[in-house]
Design a protein around this nucleic acid. Sequence first.
DNA 1: GTTTTCATGTAACCCGTTACATGATTCA
DNA 2: TGAATCATGTAACGGGTTACATGAAAAC
Lengths: 222, 222
Amino acid sequence: MSRRSGILEFAVLGLLRESPMHGYELRKRLNTSLGVFRAFSYGSLYPCLKTLVAGGYLIEEPGSAPEDARAASLAGRRAKIVYRLTADGKEHFEELLAHTGPDAWEDEHFAARFAFFGQTSRDVRMRVLEGRRSRLEERLEKMRASLARTRERLDDYTLELQRHGMESVEREVRWLNELIESERTGRDMRKAAAPQDTSGETGGTPRNRGGSRTDPSGDTAN
Amino acid sequence: MSRRSGILEFAVLGLLRESPMHGYELRKRLNTSLGVFRAFSYGSLYPCLKTLVAGGYLIEEPGSAPEDARAASLAGRRAKIVYRLTADGKEHFEELLAHTGPDAWEDEHFAARFAFFGQTSRDVRMRVLEGRRSRLEERLEKMRASLARTRERLDDYTLELQRHGMESVEREVRWLNELIESERTGRDMRKAAAPQDTSGETGGTPRNRGGSRTDPSGDTAN
DNA sequence: GTTTTCATGTAACCCGTTACATGATTCA
DNA sequence: TGAATCATGTAACGGGTTACATGAAAAC
């Protein structure tokens, strides 16, 4: 009953720590704001919110009250519910942030942790980054070994898949190296703003295409 | 009862099509041979094998005894139950291979499909590759839009996470472009040889770093 | 002869989704 | 006024893992 999922719970607490929200908006933030974060559905979000409330980590507050006074008096009225972190919730999240276990380097966990690095102390950040890196290096070792063992028996496509997979992992390791270096030499985080990229381009940063041609419906359907 | 998971079932059929095997070895192949394939556990593998047998796609055969030297050639050990594809199973797999639906471009599905491209007709390969690509391009569009909308409100780490995520996707798109081009111009598959990396260790295929004779049991524990 | 690895399974649980049901608000 | 979107929920199922139970062959 109590041991609700690590990652969803963690992300919810983290987002609500920044500011109170209602479920619907929470889900949007979960799915867009946070990196390549997996898309959670209401079917998992609302139950999660409930157990967090039950655990005393959140409180429900009436959202923007029904402007319509007459409607408010009707029975069964459902209003927006804004969730706010309690003191306990804050403390709990703090603990989760500080906790570095081998879970923290796994793919999804790591992404979630990274997304809240802004709230994380530097030494914990370092541990997480380094943990992640060595996790990936282990993985690389295995892939190399496996590749060496089986190279001949594999067709071109399987080989290519494997090669591409390894390259991706190597790429992430390099990324981590940069991040760790940044952490060591104080603030910086990449060549930062980079208004005009005069050079031929290193990392490929997004490229500032036109104005915010927003497409208001840039949302993920349920 | 029948609608067993797409991807595991698919991979099992595909591997068994190449050659009969017992469960234990099957799992190993699943976890190592096939790209960055997710690690399946026995808890899902064996039940899956059972339903495939029940469906008439596989038959169980008594494993080779220790005196059967020929069967022990590769990774050879004695086995208890060897699974072999039936004619129905072959046909079923063929259908799955030919089937191009929007599921086929999703991350895990795609990897599984790609792993068996060796058995796949060229036009299907093209459809899958192009489907995957446009799937990723959609995703990129959304990420860009979301990024444009929220850029100011995000802290450096969130931003960096997002940037890195986008870069990964862009990278895969480029990879797909190359593959599609290869398919168009007949066989080739990559520029192969890979010239020297003049820049300190870029993307080049790493292989061949010292004696990799490490840890012969490159396996994942159950 | 004991430890390791190979080998096969099962039951309980976990984390999440799909599909559904409902109601409120906004806007053309 | 009706459609789209915002907003909240739930029941049923799905696809997988973990932890456990078991045993036989290999390796030391």
